[in-house]
Design a protein around this nucleic acid. Structure first.
Length: 169
DNA sequence: TCCAATATTATGC
DNA sequence: GCATAATATTGGA
């Protein structure tokens, strides 16, 4: 697929700030945290196809639920075609983590059949284009310590606290 | 093709 | 606790 997909970015106002969702033709392919300013310019909703608009509606509600520590149900399709096969396996595994549960990098590595690739798993998490929906924040290091987070550790801690997940430190 | 970096982990002090 | 080695994957020179 060498074709250049047109990506659309739409802002999502929430109580915690303005998120930015990025859509491809296949579904939601990116999500950005508030805080930093929007380097790119999100659309206001005009000029977006009906399909994407419908997805966006579900994304907004899903995000709202996710920020309250609930498992969103009617999420739009998530486009993970951006990553390598290894990364996709990691993300897929992360999506199976239920709300309120955590997994360690080691456990994920084991699940995808490469127990020694714990470090690579961490790398895949960092490359996760869609945080929150692909719950990379529910992935902790051994001893239940925080590892890192693309949107800032501050966010990871907040998300975990809202799901009643306890972490050391 | 090779080298360095990484959101780790296990071991030894 | 802190330092070190081992290990898989990725991205750039």
């Amino acid at each position: 697929m060498k074709k250049k997909n047109e990506l659309v970015e739409v802002a999502i106002p929430t109580a915690d700030g303005e998120f930015v969702a990025r859509y491809s033709e296949s579904g939601l392919c990116g999500l950005r945290f508030p805080g930093g300013r929007n380097a790119s310019r999100p659309e206001n909703g005009a000029g977006v196809s009906g399909q994407i608009r419908k997805w966006h509606e579900r994304t907004v509600e899903g995000l709202s639920n996710a920020l309250e520590g609930r498992d969103p149900k009617n999420l739009p399709p998530i486009d993970l075609s951006a990553g390598t096969e290894f990364q996709r396996r990691v993300w897929e595994t992360m999506r199976t983590i239920a709300c309120g549960r955590t997994l360690t990098y080691g456990e994920i590595a084991k699940r995808i059949g490469k127990p020694k690739a714990v470090r690579a798993v961490g790398g895949a998490c960092g490359a996760n284009p869609v945080p929150v929906f692909v719950p990379c924040h529910r992935v902790l290091a051994a001893n239940q310590r925080l590892g890192g987070f693309s949107g800032g550790l501050d966010w990871k801690r907040r998300l975990l606290e809202r799901e009643s997940i306890k972490v050391l430190l």
